[in-house]
Nucleic acid binder design. Structure first.
Lengths: 219, 219
DNA sequence: TAGATTGTTAATCGATTAACAATC
DNA sequence: TAGATTGTTAATCGATTAACAATC
């Protein structure tokens, strides 16, 4: 049967976001298993390691195809590679980072990204003290040259690690330049057409849910 | 009726995590409204701003009590304050940061935390170049003094911004010292007793879901 | 009062879990 | 072959949305 690059067949219904959010975690566990030279694993074994149900694992995977074999389970390396393809990690994703402060630099220095096809190709800032420096070999540019840079490079993702006050305007500019995916760390929500993908990392919201759980215990 | 500090009555069933995760966003929108001197708002108006249903807002809020008034809606300032209490933001949460690299420093420098009762009281690292420096007035300590520090201070939350290889051991130590909430940025899962709260921020997983969405479009 | 909007019950929808025939 | 485990359908569970009486 003809399948597309994600392993899904054209015309099938969209995968729910609940499933999508679990995929990277499967990928991480499979990578760990692979590193430990585990050759095969059953949904039951994996479910015990990951603290989920075996049923959920099988349901999730079968959204993308039948990767297992009855009586055997799943070949770890094969499933790892297939999951990588599903996640688009076999492709190169060029990333620019808007805001070269601590958070922007932290992303640029992150080891995990490189090895998964995420290539940081530039950081941008307004601060003259940062412009011209390099982070892990990647230059910090004046944000004034953003337009030229985006036109000359294939930018898959723009990470927004700048202050709340500046984020909306820069996001608008990026979208008008044709950037189609934003990884947003500023505590704001955007309202772009649906072909613009936005993934929010709202750290304040994350720590507030932790605070909630701390203070609501034993009640 | 007697209510506890969260606005919930003792004995009522636990709030679902789907609801809890939405609370900080309500809080943010209410804070923005308050800044803009908006005095009252209906669930319908708020739903339009937030891109959710009015029904969901009312359902969510009513887990914690009736904050509105028929025919009027909600008083913004009152609801904002009540939400703050529900989230535990009226309390002081002392935070230590394990790993004083870019990410740890980014957290220490984050403006939003201070104003919501999250006080960074120390950073810890093994790197002699970092030990002794201060970030926003907060000192970076040698991680060797962690035990003494935790015993002498009331640590509500420990943020783990250190490499994957070091995270599990440090986490173990923190939990053995009685720290009850971990804010984990390392790409690992922990398996502590359920009285230890763990909030994961897995940046690699976040960007992978974005990659998935980029590469699965139009299929 | 009339209109607006809540709080809450009921209906719907979607996600998770259970079960099991197919089959390696 | 017998045992194990998948892929998939059916059952259950939980979350979201709709509806509306209560009431400001």
């Amino acid at each position: 049967m003809a399948e597309n690059s994600t392993g899904r067949q054209a015309g099938e219904k969209a995968i729910s976001s609940a499933v999508i959010k679990r995929l990277p975690r499967y990928y991480r566990y499979l990578g760990d298993l692979l590193k430990n030279n585990v050759v095969r694993i059953s949904s039951k074994q994996l479910s015990q390691r990951m603290n989920v149900t075996a049923s959920q694992i099988r349901q999730d995977l079968n959204n993308f195809g039948g990767f297992g074999q009855q009586g055997y389970g799943y070949n770890v390396e094969h499933l790892y590679n297939e999951m990588g393809k599903i996640l688009g990690l076999d492709k190169t994703n060029n990333i620019i980072i808007l805001g070269a402060g601590n958070l922007g630099q932290a992303l640029a220095n992150n080891q995990d990204f490189d090895s998964n096809g995420f290539h940081i190709i530039g950081l941008f800032d307004v601060n003259p003290k940062l412009i011209g420096m390099t982070v892990k070999g990647v230059e910090v540019y004046d944000i004034d040259i953003l337009e030229d840079f985006v036109k000359e490079h294939d930018v898959a993702i723009a990470a927004l690690t700048l202050p709340k006050s500046k984020a909306p305007k820069v996001a608008e500019q990026l979208v008008s330049l044709g950037v189609k995916a934003l990884w947003n760390f500023a505590p704001v929500d955007f309202d772009f057409p649906e072909d613009v993908l936005v993934e929010n990392v709202h750290l304040s919201e994350s720590i507030m849910t932790l605070s909630y759980r701390i203070h609501s215990q034993n009640e």
